[in-house]
Amino acid sequence: MPPLEIGPEDWLAIGLTARLAAVTLVVLFAIGTPLAWWLSRSRSAVAGLVSALVAMPLVLPPTVLGFYLLVLLGPRGPIGELTQSLGLGTLPFTFSGLVVASTVFSLPFVVQPLQASFSALGERMLEAAATLRAGPIDTFIHVVLPLCRPGFLSAAVLGFAHTVGEFGVVLMMGGNIPGKTQVLSIAIYNRVEAFEYAHAHVLAGGLLVFSFVSLLALQWFNRGRGGSRLVGGDA
């Protein structure tokens, strides 16, 4: 058995994966927070439609999603033509392309916990804040954020971990360029293909432990204080 060590190529993959997950998480919150807010407040039919669309990645095989993203974003696709005409080139086989794909793929993991948390908050807290002269943004920062902290935390952990763990979508979007689009899950795949099982163990085991610890920490936090806080008191 060769010594179990992580080579420079692995570090590239790990760094790229962390960067991808972090950037994606920022984009996810930027899009997911207003989207989840709207879904939790709206009773329109359109909201139901959007809700179903957002949840699609939960049931679709990642290859299907990746395939259609490739078609849409590719040089002949409508979005690809748009990005080209804007002088941005095409997104597949680039880091930005991975961010777009990961965002679509991980969206339900951010939107659903946030939406559940916003719904549980109810109208009353917002009305109480308004009667105390707090405007909408003031209310969001000083009432919604602290009361929905468990929801935001769940969304962050799930969104990040899910992006770290994705494989099919990245593969379809051209993610096998070392240092550019080769993320951890693909590096593991490459090791296994090359029968470097011991090496694959190090990376796969590391990912396993990372995922488990993240979820465990989330459980502890939400159980310990966040959960009881949101429910506690009279809503």
Partner: peptide, 20 residues
């Protein structure tokens, strides 16, 4: 005038205090 611009005090049936 939206609620947050009206100089009112409002007491709800349930106290509706901020639990945090």
């Amino acid at each position: 005038l939206p609620t947050h611009r009206r100089p009112i005090g409002y007491v709800f049936q349930e106290a509706s205090l901020f639990p945090h």
